[in-house]
Amino acid sequence: MPHVSMVLTPGFQFLALGVQAAFELANVLKGEEYYTLSIASVEGGPVTSSSGFAVPTTRLDDVGPVDTLLLLAGLVPPPPQEEATLDRLRAMARQSRRVAGLCTGAFLLGQMGLLDGCRATTHWSYARQMREAFPGVRVEDDRIFINEGAVWTSAGLTAGLDLAVALVEKDLGREIAGSIARRLVMHHRRAGGQSQHSELLELAPSSDRIQKALIFARSHLANPLTVEELAEVAALSPRQFARAFRAETGQTPAKAVEQMRLEAARLMIEETRHPMDQVARESGFLDLRRMREAFMRQYGQPPQAVRRLARSAQANVAR
């Protein structure tokens, strides 16, 4: 009977505790108590969340054998932990089948030395901080979650639920994992390789006119999408449109369109088996050469490498 222990640190975010729902629902769907659950901390006793509410916890050493160790932290990365604390976490991780750092909990794994030489992710807004703190870790800030052997990391708080469902899928199969996702009203179970955020949301223009032009561009990526075409959609002159667009988004229209094309192409590459030349045409790059150049500028690797990484991640989850 696998035991899942969620380990809290002071200042943890309550939402992170929601990952237990995936394991609870697995028990419901199995019709038996397949997983047992505990909420623990290194010292035990009440642990205060970022919102000021305390949660009772069991002392980690008293939890008993742990199959899956989940490290939960807060809205900001946890400060460096005392070496004695890290030693106790390392000891428990060694005894566990797998360990996961949810959102900023990945920083705890980094402090424990479990991410050295590995790929890892965390909330995109702290990716740079993680790279600086742990130069031996290959931080990928555009991933929902990453599985490196027995070590898992996830992006922002809700991505922890995607990771939890993936853990259940490893144990009990895709059918139960899919049922859990439906019960949790998740739009779909996101694969680990999916991007953390949308370029359209990232641009966040303030006026309806610029927003309308962006939505049009997103829906017509195969069009040339010149400044003149987008300006016409926004009912502005090309000069007015270019000036307003940069003021509201901080980017030129051409750069924004390229970012949306990259996002669309990457999703097609990761989630479909379309030939690369078809992906290039449908995302508006016209040909594979232009798409490859854009991928090298943005991601530092060609489209074929992105597809290989996505398939490798999917294979890891399926095992």
Rank of each mutant, 00 (worst) to 15 (best):
T9D: 02
P10G: 00
Q13I: 08
F14Y: 07
F14E: 12
L15S: 11
A16G: 08
A16P: 02
L17C: 06
G18W: 00
V19Q: 06
V19I: 11
A21Q: 13
A22M: 00
L25D: 09
L25T: 07
A26K: 01
L29R: 12
K30F: 01
E33H: 10
T36E: 09
L37K: 01
S38P: 05
A40D: 13
V42Y: 01
V42P: 01
V42S: 00
E43M: 07
E43H: 08
G44L: 07
G44P: 07
P46Q: 04
S51Y: 12
F53W: 13
A54W: 05
A54L: 13
V55W: 12
V55C: 09
T57D: 11
T58G: 10
T58Y: 07
R59H: 09
R59S: 14
R59V: 15
D61H: 10
D62L: 14
V63N: 09
V63T: 14
G64M: 12
G64D: 08
P65V: 09
P65L: 10
V66K: 06
T68F: 13
L72C: 08
L72R: 06
A73N: 10
V76H: 12
V76M: 13
P79E: 15
P80N: 07
E83V: 13
E83C: 07
E83W: 09
A84P: 09
A84V: 14
T85R: 13
D87Q: 13
D87A: 15
R88Y: 00
R88V: 10
R88F: 00
R90W: 02
R90D: 04
R90T: 07
M92E: 15
M92G: 04
R94Y: 09
R94P: 04
Q95M: 08
R98I: 05
R98W: 06
V99S: 07
V99A: 03
A100F: 02
L102W: 01
L102E: 00
T104G: 06
G105W: 01
G105C: 04
G105V: 01
L108K: 03
L109I: 04
Q111N: 03
Q111D: 14
M112G: 04
M112W: 02
G113W: 05
G113S: 08
L115I: 11
D116A: 11
